[in-house]
Write a protein that binds this DNA or RNA. Sequence first.
RNA 1: GUCCCCAUCGUCUAGAGGCCUAGGACACCAGCCUUUCACGUUGGUAACACGGGUUCGAAUCCCGUUGGGGACGCCA
Length: 524
Amino acid sequence: MPAPGVTSPPLSRPRAPLFLCACFAALVMTVTVHKARCCATSAGNGLVYPQKIVLIMKIVTRFAPSPTGFLHIGGGRTALFNWLFAKHHQGTFLLRIEDTDRARSTQAAVDAILDGLKWLGLEWDGEAVSQFERKDRHAEVVAEMLANGTAYRCYCTPEELDAMREAQKAAGQQPRYDGRWRDRDPSEAPAGIAPAIRLKAPREGETVVNDHVQGEVRVQNSQLDDLILLRSDGTPTYLLAVVVDDHDMGVTHVVRGDDHLTNTFRQLQIYNAMGWAAPEFAHIPLIHGPDGAKLSKRHGALGIEAYRDMGFLPETMRNYLLRLGWGHGDAEIISTEQAIEWFTLEGIGRSPSRLDFAKMENLNAHYIREADDARLVALTSPFIEAKIGRALTDAEKERLLRSVPGFKPRVKTLLELADGSLYLFANRPLALDDKAAALLTAEARSQLAALAEAFAASPDWSGAALEQIVRDHAERTGLKLGKLAQPLRAALTGSTVSPPIFEVAEILGRAETLVRLEDVAKGG
RNA sequence: GUCCCCAUCGUCUAGAGGCCUAGGACACCAGCCUUUCACGUUGGUAACACGGGUUCGAAUCCCGUUGGGGACGCCA
């Protein structure tokens, strides 16, 4: 315990009373360190009720993407977990854009991330913070560290560092900054070289993080080198900026990808150097592709907007992403409200998971079935308009609206809904897909001609009336209903899949239905 | 290479030493329903990576092996 190391707040994956103490410790940490000590102590002896904690504790989480690409699905899940955790505790969910790498950050990427989060329905509190704009504050903190002796100037050139790493590798050692400027007298500084500022990290002992997902993880300080805080051009590095910003923004819980676990040790060292209380951490396992390989923006993974364009609903994504790495008993279909109520860090699994499009589609089919018809029309119209190359008229949207209820149980994505609705707006003669064309045999065509005649004579153009006509016809000719209904479907929709076919005829209307039947009867 | 993490059906997961003959969901197969395709419904195939411990008892705890992943930048 008295080791010269650094430890994050002692926390594991406790239940019952232990958990309450832990939460309490977390909350006081946001106030001041001194209060934290005494409150934590008294909490340890007394009984603390959850209700009270909710009143006192203000949870603050954040999502901190770097704008070097779109919002990929792993980032989306990280954002979701942070959002859910904040909502669960009636806390605050902040957004910070980590744009300190000026060369790689783009406004287009910032916009894509913002759009992606909005589409997912993950609204953040307050304004999005630009990390780059806080660079003066970062420099100020480093000046403080320089003054208190926890940081120093390093005059190594990039070439020199490369050479050092090469030599270490050649000697079979692991590449690490050797601290050559750590204790050197400033008077030895070479002229004309702007120094980078490094952290004077502890060399003895170990650093421990008590992670909400990974449990207690420790590393020997000898494994960690003196990281750069401020580049020679005066800009902050990620490791420094994250710590300063999380501290200044009052972040209480850092929920992020597993790939940051090893960064945490170094960040803890910075917290310690500044005498700041560290937030609590939860490192969630990464999402892998269907092949098990790493999924990241560097490996061509899809942006969240790609899922939108494939016709997935945002509520599908929230549910699917939630279940990827998090579980609540046997629950599968989980509404967002329910998710907020149930979500805890302790429910997060420790092993990486793979993307499964089939399951995502199944969930999407569920949410499409549940979705409001007018909303589906609004979401599907753009897909249709893109395909037919023109805007839909109000009358056409009305027609779409009438066909949606019968069709939505049959599709898995909005894109399928759009494709399957195209016949409503298609120009004659209708293009037939292969299966539909195969249905239209000479025999079928002559039956359709007979049906067309009967339809034309019907005073009532309702789906029910038309169905009765076909049923009567089937009875008279001894044909099975399917033998008539299927060719009818092919003739009217060009496909073998559609909403209930008599409904289709009703929506299409008398004139359009008869002329389409005529087209087919003519053999065209 | 060094350090760190992970390991239950094909996939997502339940599982907190006896409720496990290992449960659910997706996918797959078969039946029912049916106006095609679906939805729905009934049933089925399918997993504790391996080896040692600890224990009366291990999917669960410990150690090792193997396999997978992550991190080792004046990127984030």
